[in-house]
Design a protein around this nucleic acid. Structure first.
Lengths: 260, 260
DNA sequence: ATTTCTATGTGCGGTATCGAACAGACGGTA
DNA sequence: TACCGTCTGTTCGATACCGCACATAGAAAT
């Protein structure tokens, strides 16, 4: 039930090249002048597996921009201890939108699902910057809309699709945020994320393995055939991906519609 | 499957008192000077049952502020025609957040679930006002966060709770947005919203009726025992309600943290 | 009154998932 | 090498929901 944070020290998977804020897509597509002003305030932090970024109802102190390989899962934990993933955030986005949305807290929890690094910005600086600069605001709100799409599609998927389809979606979402084809993740944890039984994940994973799409071994999954996964996944994955691609572009269309 | 829009003309349930923008909570808690400036641009429109406010992927032209009794359902329609409700919006909110979030469209559809009236604002005016006035922006973003909570809780509820629990949640959500205890809604339509079979709704509704909580008859549901419904509902309802209450208040806490 | 249509109630077999119990398998540690 | 904890695979009965078919009951129309 509890997320066992046995904090696997990054061994072979940590390439020694120095990270750059540009490795986060959101930071990368910020207009240059905004980015340059923000850069000195960015701080690089380590994101160990299982680390709780924020807890339900607790005020956020930073906003996080994960780097490739780092994935943060937003999930809701019910009174009986069962949980369900609401959205995942990786190198394409940020964690902590409640800061600039004005609520400061959310009823959900954010937890590191795949270890890595992230850049952070202090809450106060973030709020200030957000209220003052239209370009940053525009981009962050567009990102929020993309995130909303992921959340709503999760709702739809939970209602209508099988565990196997959802597992495929989950694997593809993860894959998109990782630098290679391997993810470190037990079936137990995946089950927590999807809000299903561990056995259900085992069964679905076995079927995928039998098809030669993935290889599974004690907490390590290797994706062997991505196109094959995409044949098994429900339409939800593509809907979300399309929205991310549409909304998160460098040149934001019609930004001048907001009259100065 | 299709929403049969037989457009019941508002008979007895339409009180003849003239509507006011203040009947919409969001408009009501806007700071006076913002509201006064906006007022001449608000236009009252009729919202007949089944009317499609916006369609998946089609650019929005107006933002809608429903009045008491009017409920708009946001739902996603899958390729196979089945659907699932993502959120409902009534007198406490607005329809069309994608306008100021920057995406202009969403993959979902918005449809009038309970007939009534709404005030609308033209897209261009709305965008302009949003980018220029911090107070309005702050409130609308807080509303958006509340809406996000409703969406995510829908995802959780879809995963973990029974049809009966979800029906209770749905009835309470509707009730909160209506002026009386009666809602006009067939089981078929409710089933479309919840994304379950009509028979499933029948069964759940029968149980509630047997408990004396509701009375059901050919498209008319009367809530007889609201506290009784609240005993049957899952925790999801309260979580969402609490967030709406927290986020949508007249005096927004720490709004001055956004330095002028 | 009769017809027609729509909404609701019911029954039945099929399926996906659950909950629980347990066996095997791999990897790290002693 | 032997042990032990964790991860994975499998089984089994129970349950919730599905898909379908059909019966009944109101309401509206003729």
């Amino acid at each position: 039930m509890t997320i066992s944070a046995h904090t696997t020290a990054p061994k072979k998977t940590a390439p020694n090249k120095t990270p750059s804020p540009c490795d986060n897509k959101l930071l990368n597509i910020l207009p240059k002048e905004v980015f340059d002003r923000m850069k000195p305030n960015l701080e690089l932090v380590s994101m160990p597996l299982g680390k709780v970024i924020y807890e339900s109802g607790v005020e956020l102190e930073n906003i996080y921009f994960p780097l490739p390989g780092c994935i943060v899962s937003m999930l809701y934990v019910l009174n009986d201890g069962s949980s369900a993933e609401i959205a995942v955030v990786g190198k394409e986005g940020m964690v902590g939108i409640a800061l600039f949305m004005g609520g400061d807290t959310t009823p959900s929890r954010a937890i590191v699902q795949s270890a890595g690094q992230a850049y952070i910005l202090k809450s106060s600086y973030m709020k200030d910057e957000f209220s003052r600069h239209t370009q940053l605001q525009t981009l962050f709100l567009r990102y929020t809309q993309a995130l909303i799409t992921q959340m709503t599609q999760t709702a739809v998927c939970n209602r209508h699709h099988t565990v196997q389809q959802q597992l495929c979606r989950w694997l593809l979402l993860s894959l998109d945020r990782l630098p290679n084809n391997e993810l470190t993740m037990t079936q137990e944890l995946i089950a927590n994320m999807l809000g299903v039984r561990r056995e259900g994940v085992t069964e679905a994973a076995c079927k995928l393995q039998a098809q030669g799409l993935i290889r599974y071994s004690r907490g390590h999954i290797t994706i062997l055939d991505r196109p094959g996964l995409e044949k098994n996944v429900c339409e939800c994955y593509a809907v979300v991906k399309k929205e991310y691609d549409r909304l998160l572009v460098e040149k934001i269309p019609s930004m001048q519609s907001a009259r100065k």
